[in-house]
Amino acid sequence: MLPASKSIPKEMLPIVDRPAIEYVVKEAVRAGIKEIILVTHSAKTAIEDYFDTQFELEEQLEAKGKNTLLAQVRDILPHDVSLISVRQHRALGLGHAVACAAPVVGDAPFAVLLPDVLVDCDGLDEDLGIMVERYQASGAAQIMVEEVPAERVDQYGIVALKGGVPVPGESTPMTAVVEKPAVGEAPSQLSVVGRYVLPGEIMGILAETPRGAGNEIQLTDAIASLMERAPVEAYAMRGRTFDCGNKAGYLQAIFHFAARHPELGEQVREMMAAELG
């Protein structure tokens, strides 16, 4: 996302009128999660500041009678949800980032949401909430997956399944995760999306996981080790994903959420139609 992300964390780039990270945090909140842990580094203090209370701004909005804006500012994080941040001092991979939260997570089950990816279920029961319910009911870790074209499997982590491909909204046992397999050699066309519900015990596994692909500690390697001792399931998502880690995906997310915006939607759809005209 350069050059925009040169001075602004890419998670803070706006999707219409809110930064991308807010969409992800609120997705977790809607799934019933009450404790949010941000894994950040020194260049991303803007993320922490965004979720903090700004009394001066709220006082100004209240004094000017801008009650709608005041409500939106106060609605960023519900009062019954706590948010803290921990620092990842060196970028050593997703597995390392998750492990940085171990002192806070302890032995409790937790979810991992990658902020590059936005998920919209368009009014359906949300995928992350279903994954949490399935974990609570079965004790099996849940890995969100979606189907990708066969010619693009070499760009993703691809799961191997014990049974047939699950229908959207259902889970099936996994036997392996293959990182970027060669086209024609992939065990399925189901790619890992960036949403995980995991048991606390994986923190101990991560602590012993050596560096893998890219000389980084990979979460997929730890999940592979977890499968040797506990059930792990692939959850076939029903919603739609937007990869905001690249320019095309970011613009697609803006178009999608702008067209559905409660205040701007009609105007945006008219503008899009005029541009395509």
Rank of each mutant, 00 (worst) to 15 (best):
F257C: 03
Q88N: 07
R74A: 04
P262G: 05
V104Y: 14
I223P: 01
A234L: 11
F257G: 02
P231I: 07
Y250T: 01
D116I: 01
E59Y: 12
R30C: 10
G65C: 03
L113F: 11
D221L: 09
H256L: 02
E133S: 13
R90D: 07
K6Y: 13
V183H: 14
Q218R: 15
E59A: 15
S42M: 03
R269M: 06
R87P: 00
V268F: 08
H261V: 00
A258N: 04
E179H: 12
C244E: 02
A111L: 08
A97D: 07
L190K: 05
S188E: 04
Q218C: 10
V98G: 06
A259Y: 03
G184I: 03
V159H: 14
I36W: 10
V268Y: 07
Q54F: 14
T172S: 15
D122S: 10
A97E: 07
I223F: 08
L226G: 01
P262M: 11
P199F: 05
A176I: 00
S42A: 08
I36H: 08
Y135I: 02
A28W: 02
I37F: 13
A224W: 05
E126Y: 07
A43L: 05
I143F: 04
V117W: 09
V104L: 13
P78I: 05
S82F: 03
I202T: 01
P115E: 14
G214L: 10
V16A: 09
S42K: 09
V167Y: 07
I8Y: 08
T209K: 07
G129P: 00
D154G: 03
N246P: 00
Q88T: 01
S188D: 05
E58W: 14
H41G: 03
G95S: 03
A31K: 05
K6V: 00
G204P: 02
M144T: 01
P3Q: 10
M237W: 03
M1H: 13
G265H: 07
S82P: 00
L128P: 00
A182D: 13
Q54K: 15
E48G: 02
K26P: 00
R195Y: 12
E35W: 12
G106D: 08
Q155Y: 15
T175Q: 14
G194C: 07
D125F: 08
M174L: 14
A160G: 09
I254P: 00
A99R: 08
H79Q: 15
D125H: 13
L226I: 02
Q72K: 15
L264T: 01
M1E: 10
S225V: 04
V132Q: 10
T45Y: 13
I76M: 12
I158L: 08
S42W: 02
G164K: 15
P78F: 12
I8D: 04
Y156K: 06
R90M: 07
P262S: 07
T220C: 02
I37Q: 11
M1W: 11
K34V: 02
A111E: 05
Q189I: 01
I205A: 09
P3A: 06
V148D: 06
S7Y: 15
K44H: 11
